[in-house]
């Protein structure tokens, strides 16, 4: 089994619901964004269109971050292909951040909170549980997936632009969409074989 995601760029409306639901699910501190939405405008008035590109860890089959990590803190779960980080092993050398061609890793370098008055009770409960001085990234909400749920960004996407499934199963919806609609990964030239595919807008 290899978990993967398909993101339909035609359906994405750039609402940032994935980014917010991810933050709520993981309680990530400021400056740590497991899921992001990139926005770009192209063309010239009046022929202009706005494009959105939601990005997250690509959970690559040939993950360069795993190879670059000197401690084994970055690793790949054999049973489902999810690339994860063991914060207890991370030394904070950030070599994985330099190895990731998608720039989807973040260094949580000090206790942070969003407001000047100090950490809110929510932040104390959620953000405070993350180790500082280590690298963090998306893990496809592995705990949720193991409990039979969808990742938070998938479950909360209002336009159903994100589809989650088994890439190894040729009959799964993700495999079907990639085949029928010409799904493409980002930076295929990097040879990382990502598990996140995009459907053309």
């Amino acid at each position: 089994m290899r978990w993967g995601m398909v993101i339909d760029l035609r359906r994405c409306i750039g609402c940032y619901g994935c980014q917010l639901s991810c933050k709520a699910e993981h309680g990530t501190p400021p400056g740590v964004l497991f899921a992001r939405v990139l926005k770009q405008e192209e063309g010239q008035y009046p022929n202009v269109r706005q494009l959105f590109l939601p990005v997250l860890c690509n959970h690559c089959e040939e993950a360069p971050c795993v190879d670059a990590c000197p401690t084994g803190a970055s690793f790949k779960w054999e049973e489902d292909g999810i690339v994860d980080i063991d914060p207890d092993k991370c030394v904070g050398c950030r070599s994985c951040m330099m190895a990731c061609p998608y720039s989807n890793r973040y260094f949580n370098d000090s206790p942070q909170h969003y407001f000047e008055d100090g950490a809110t009770p929510y932040e104390q409960a959620r953000t405070g549980r993350h180790q500082t001085d280590v690298v963090m990234k998306c893990n496809f909400c592995r705990d949720r997936v193991r409990a039979g749920k969808k990742p938070a960004c998938v479950a909360n996407c209002p336009t159903v632009a994100r589809i989650f499934g088994d890439l190894d199963d040729p009959t799964s919806e993700v495999s079907r969409l990639i085949k029928e609609r010409g799904g493409f990964p980002l930076h295929p030239e990097a040879g990382t074989r990502p598990s996140v595919y995009y459907l053309p807008p």
């Binding site: 670059a68 990590c69 000197p70 092993k89 991370c90 030394v91 050398c93 370098d109 001085d133």
Partner: peptide, 19 residues
């Protein structure tokens, strides 16, 4: 290093990691 007290762990992945 962010966590220098764990430096000894850096010997673990010499097969793949240049660091």
């Amino acid at each position: 290093l962010g966590r220098p007290q764990r430096f000894w762990r850096m010997a673990a992945q010499w097969r793949t990691s240049w660091i």
